[in-house]
Amino acid sequence: MSAATLTNVHSRVRELAPGFVVSLIVAAAATFLSEHYGAPVMLFALLLGMALNFLAADGQCKAGIEFTARSVLRIGVALLGMRITLEQIAGLGWKPLALVVTLVVVTILVSVVAAKALGFKHIFGMLTGGATAICGASAALALAAALPNDPQKERATLFTVLGVSALSTLAMILYPMIANWANLSPQEAGVFLGATIHDVAQVVGAGYSMSPETGDTATLVKLMRVAMLVPVIIVAAMITRLQGADPTGKRPPLLPLFAVGFVILACVNSTGWVPPLVQGGVNELSRWCLVVAISALGMKTQLKELAAVGIRPILLMVGETVFLVVLALLLLHWGS
């Protein structure tokens, strides 16, 4: 490596380090609070980041915060592939797979239509619908990384993460009650919880609070929803390419690199050659990347901007969540 290249790398690291370190500190604080108070770590990271939004203004931290919110986010999404294997998905049979695909496709389509009806851009419908239908905050961040730049995209992403984290916490408490009320069997309850609760952690919490069998099934169904990230990202990229939605004139790649990384890691994990220690380490690294990235995204926003969105986005996300629950119960009843 030449001296000039080393100098450039050193200069770039010095430029990015302050913002990245600040994001890392916020993520560590959010993790500590989450572990001690039980609320979603993404919610704490977002709120703490927003409290420090002055750091993202012109200054030493700005470049590093921008880098963390964009590049570290994509690394975290790619590493999510290590959570799933093809064998896990095949082991559940075709009915849960058909149910998950139907729920994801229908919920996102309904969300886009509802968003347009409420006066929002289709991007907001994709973000909220994807977050509700797939895997909560992780899906919102993944879709935001795949969609083209838009003046409203970051605010929409932050609002989606905030809303889906709050709804996911409520779901973890309420949905086991709904499963009991509907007299679902342990496996049916697992399918219901895994197919409707937004975030992985809340699915695990709700499932194992009912029974080990329900928890195992809920986790696998949830991972099937995580696997839907890739086709949804591809479709979102295709739509935005066709519409030329990026005001800068750049067209997003049909299959972003982080989506390719997700698929490769899922395939590698499916071989069974990955030691549990490595698998656990990659999953933990993925979680940290996403928490650090959402901390940076929080620092890039102003609370008054979120307060200005009004009641319509809240109604949209609550409506999507209720729609997903009702549709899941109907499909379970129809398929039984």
Rank of each mutant, 00 (worst) to 15 (best):
M177W: 07
G261N: 04
A17G: 05
M177C: 08
V309N: 11
G281A: 11
A201Y: 12
G194F: 04
L92E: 09
L43P: 09
R155F: 05
N183P: 00
A133E: 08
G272S: 06
L141H: 10
V164D: 02
T240S: 14
I75L: 15
T102G: 09
I233Q: 08
A146M: 09
V100T: 08
V191S: 00
M50D: 09
L48D: 04
P186I: 06
S165L: 09
G272Y: 10
L257G: 09
A145F: 07
R70Q: 14
A45G: 08
G310N: 08
L167P: 05
P186A: 02
L16M: 02
L324T: 02
R12G: 01
V268Y: 08
L16D: 05
I264R: 02
V104A: 06
V110T: 09
L331T: 05
T128K: 00
T196I: 04
K153I: 01
L86C: 08
A179I: 06
L52Q: 03
A133H: 10
L47C: 13
E188V: 01
G281S: 14
W334D: 06
A63T: 07
W288T: 14
S111V: 01
V9G: 00
F262Q: 07
K304C: 12
I234D: 12
G319T: 01
T169I: 02
I233H: 06
A218W: 01
L127M: 07
V318C: 10
V21K: 02
G280M: 00
I234P: 11
L257W: 15
D199N: 12
G38E: 07
V77G: 04
L99F: 00
T132M: 08
V232W: 02
M224A: 13
C135D: 07
A201C: 03
G261C: 01
V110G: 03
G194M: 04
G281Q: 11
L285G: 10
G194I: 04
M317L: 13
F67V: 03
V274H: 00
A328P: 03
W334E: 11
L86H: 08
H198R: 03
R70D: 15
P252Y: 09
I314G: 03
L127G: 06
A51L: 11
V105C: 10
A237R: 03
V104K: 05
F120N: 04
A266V: 03
I234C: 12
A4N: 13
P96I: 06
A259H: 08
T219C: 02
R155Q: 13
S138D: 11
G163I: 08
T128Q: 09
R12T: 14
V232I: 14
K153M: 12
S295G: 12
A156Q: 15
S34R: 07
P231D: 02
L290F: 13
G215Q: 05
V104L: 10
L52H: 00
S185P: 07
I233K: 06
N53M: 05
Q152A: 14
